[in-house]
Computed example of a mutant assay.
Amino acid sequence: MTVELRHHHDVEEVRTAIVDIHVEVRQRDFGLVGDFYSAERFSDRLSGHSGAPGWEAVIAYDDGEPAGFAYATPLGPKTRWWSGMNTPLPNGYTEENGTRTLALNEIVVRRTWRGTGLAHRIHEDLLTGRTEERVTLLVNPQAGDGKVQAVYERWGYKKIGDLQPFPDSPVFAAMIRPLRSTLGTPEGTRA
């Protein structure tokens, strides 16, 4: 397996690959259906995320074939990221200025490459060179019977509460960690 990671800052160059992988994995592999998981709704969310300053994606290519991706956006002062939080957080915790917190909006790896460590490799490559203090993500605690959340915990993320970003979305576990983590992925726990 010869995997190349490429950084992208123009969503239109990679929109089709990102949406196609998302639909393949979320709908076909994981059976997530409904309007929230439709290609149109995901593409709309992608447009919203990528329209913010600092948006960046990393796509993994194996011999030219997209194998997975991750993308992230810094949270600006008027972010709605924290507005669906169901858990009280300390004063100031959700104050954003565009340089404090990076939101890892999506990380998705196609079936053939799962379990190879590619997700972690994409994740770490995306964070390399970023200057934010911390990184946050949302994970469905039911995904993989909790295994997906456990992977993020091994990567250094801690759950800070529950968040429902849209009325028709699942309630996600909101997780956060310092941008720079000294944690690796121990052998046998790859994603």
Rank of each mutant, 00 (worst) to 15 (best):
T2K: 08
T2S: 08
V3F: 03
H9D: 14
D10N: 10
V11M: 02
E12D: 15
E13G: 05
T16H: 11
V19S: 13
V23H: 02
E24V: 14
V25I: 11
R28L: 14
D29H: 05
G31S: 12
G34Q: 02
G34T: 02
Y37Q: 09
Y37K: 07
A39N: 14
F42V: 12
D44K: 12
G48V: 15
G48K: 13
G51V: 13
W55P: 06
W55N: 02
V58G: 01
V58R: 01
E65C: 11
E65G: 04
F69V: 08
A70S: 06
L75D: 07
L75S: 00
P77Y: 12
G84P: 11
M85P: 06
L89F: 07
G92M: 02
T101D: 01
L102A: 00
L104F: 04
N105M: 09
N105L: 10
E106Q: 13
E106M: 05
I107M: 04
V109E: 09
R111Q: 14
W113V: 05
G117P: 12
L118S: 09
I122V: 10
E124K: 05
L127N: 00
T131G: 08
T136N: 08
L138V: 10
N140E: 07
P141H: 04
P141K: 08
G144S: 11
D145F: 01
D145R: 09
D145A: 14
V148T: 15
V148W: 01
Q149I: 09
K158E: 14
L163E: 05
S169E: 08
P170C: 11
P170E: 06
P170L: 10
A174W: 03
I176N: 11
P178F: 04
L179E: 01
T182P: 03
T182K: 03
L183K: 09
G184F: 04
G184R: 01
G188F: 05
T189P: 03
R190H: 15
